[in-house]
């Protein structure tokens, strides 16, 4: 009951935030927080639930970003379809990657994803006929769209805010559904012990592929959005190891295998990082590193997990007090 109220309040805040606070920096910050929530949620499905720690998720982000961009620039496909197709392309790319990397377990899986992602980045950098190489792709205008008869002003950040808010909701709902159904339970089993999972009838190859595909789809969509928001892509902006690492950190710091974890992780890290970027030229990821070390050392369940246990303790205390009263 209380949860529903909280969720409704959250939705209302989400809905009116850009109308209340009009500072462009703040809107930009919220867009970044939401986008990184989607990316964190994407990473969380594979790394948190299924326990397959990827260091190469930028591949899917980049695939989505380039697909959306190229479709718009050379075929005139509307970004709304483009973003979705970007998600699909990311899924298609994830399949051969899964075929290679899922043969390895634990840290070796992680290293292999890192290697694949670097290969993909180098290909993007050098396949100039498709990606324009290091120069990157740039769009100057976005298509005319009207909403209830009013033309949308792409120069304002607010429309972007609502788009990414919807994508974020979808990502969180997908995570919620995964966590509540058989699929999510299977992924957890996979994380805990692959042999045991097989022995009770779980097709672990299929489960891993499903997790990867779902994860890639969300990252691809976020990538498409990123490209449209920046109106620019180049290989280092969307395929770099740094991006993969950021997603991972947001998910781990927020809380692995939790629905709200990526949101918390993104709020904490992205807010700190972006505010830092406002004042200093470089080095905004310093908090990511710092919080990661803190989380591994003191909060293995992440910030979200920590909040949850604190709440549980409080509730227990209350119950005990009630009992004695």
């Amino acid at each position: 009951m209380k949860k529903t109220v909280l969720i409704i309040i959250g939705l209302i805040v989400l809905g009116i935030a850009p109308l209340v606070v009009r500072s462009p920096f703040f809107v930009h910050l919220m867009i970044m927080v939401l986008m990184w929530t989607v990316l964190g949620a994407s990473w969380n499905i594979l790394g948190g639930y299924a326990g397959q720690v990827s260091f190469g998720h930028a591949t899917f982000l980049g695939a989505g970003a380039y697909t959306t961009m190229i479709l718009y620039l050379s075929c005139g496909v509307d970004p709304w379809y483009g973003i979705f197709i970007g998600g699909i392309v990311a899924v298609l790319i994830s399949l051969p990657i899964g075929f290679i990397c899922f043969r390895l377990r634990g840290p070796y899986f992680s290293l292999s994803t890192l290697a694949v992602a670097e290969i993909v980045r180098l290909v993007a950098l050098n396949w100039e006929s498709l990606t324009a190489g290091p120069v990157g792709l740039l769009i100057t205008t976005l298509p005319q769209v009207s909403f209830f008869g009013k033309a949308i002003n792409w120069e304002s950040k607010v429309p972007f805010y609502y788009i990414i808010a919807i994508i974020t909701l979808i990502a969180l709902i997908i995570t919620y559904i995964v966590s509540r159904t058989r699929v999510g339970a299977y992924l957890l089993a996979l994380r805990e012990d692959i042999d045991s999972a097989e022995s009770i009838g779980i097709n672990t190859v299929k489960a891993r592929v499903v997790a990867l595909a779902l994860s890639a789809f969300l990252a691809g969509i976020a990538g498409g959005f990123y490209a449209m928001y920046l109106r620019y892509v180049d290989p280092d902006a969307v395929f770099s190891i740094g991006l993969s690492v950021e997603m991972l950190f947001i998910a781990v710091v927020g809380g692995l295998a939790t629905v709200g974890g990526p949101l918390i992780g993104a709020i904490v890290l992205v807010t700190l990082g972006e505010s830092f970027r406002e004042h200093f030229l470089s080095g905004h990821l310093i908090f990511y590193g710092f919080f990661m070390m803190l989380a591994i050392r003191y909060m293995p369940d992440g910030v979200w997990g920590r909040i949850n246990t604190l709440f549980k303790k409080l509730r227990l205390k209350k119950d005990v007090n009630h009992g004695t009263a």
Binding site: P107, V252, L285, G289, F290, M292, M293, A295, I296
Partner: peptide
């Protein structure tokens, strides 16, 4: 705490050090 945890921890250390250097 295991291979994966240390992997993540040292990744954190790496990001911390390189960004401090950037700063």
């Amino acid at each position: 705490a295991g291979e994966l945890n240390t992997l993540l921890y040292t990744a954190g250390l790496s990001l911390f050090v390189s960004n401090l250097a950037l700063l």
